[in-house]
């Protein structure tokens, strides 16, 4: 998939909660506040995966949400980037012993960048978006 130059100036984001405790969501909402204001870089939240370029996933993947996560990923038009926010999606985090998990996220869909932390700081999420763009530039998108 050819890397579109315009992604650097316009990255529409879809939030997906795969069983998160809402801690990561609070940090993501902080991204939209005057302090971080990611709209400066053309990043904005959209309501439909069809409009999105970037999929931000939070939480360990529960058994119920896994098919939905796969569906949302497939609904996104190419080219697309996936970022996993929080340590839950990496290893299960605080929920690692739970009977209802079938995560981590990269067992379900390919992930481009991982942001560890419980929750990660907003700066770390912006850094991850930059990393994902660099990765796209090298045309290494896992799609």
């Amino acid at each position: 998939m050819k890397y579109p130059n315009s992604f650097r100036k316009s990255l529409w984001t879809f939030l997906f909660n795969a069983g998160s405790c809402n801690g990561c969501e609070i940090e993501m909402v902080a991204l939209l506040t005057p302090r971080y204001d990611v709209e400066r870089f053309g990043i904005k939240l959209v309501g439909s995966p069809r409009h999105a370029d970037l999929l931000l996933i939070t939480g360990p993947v529960t058994r119920k949400i896994a098919p939905r996560l796969r569906m949302v990923y497939e609904q996104m038009p190419d080219p697309k980037v996936v970022i996993n926010v929080g340590v839950c999606g990496v290893s299960g985090g605080a929920f690692y012993e739970s009977y209802s998990l079938i995560g981590p996220v990269d067992d379900i869909i390919p992930v481009d960048v991982y942001v560890p932390g419980c929750p990660p700081r907003p700066e770390a999420i912006i850094h991850a978006a930059v990393k994902a763009l660099e990765k796209l530039e090298r045309a290494e998108v896992a799609s």
């Binding site: 579109p4 315009s6 992604f7 100036k9 316009s10 069809r50 370029d53 038009p77 190419d78 080219p79």
Partner: peptide, 8 residues
């Protein structure tokens, strides 16, 4: 950006 994306 939208013009360069897939049209589903």
């Amino acid at each position: 950006k939208l013009m360069s994306k897939e049209n589903v």
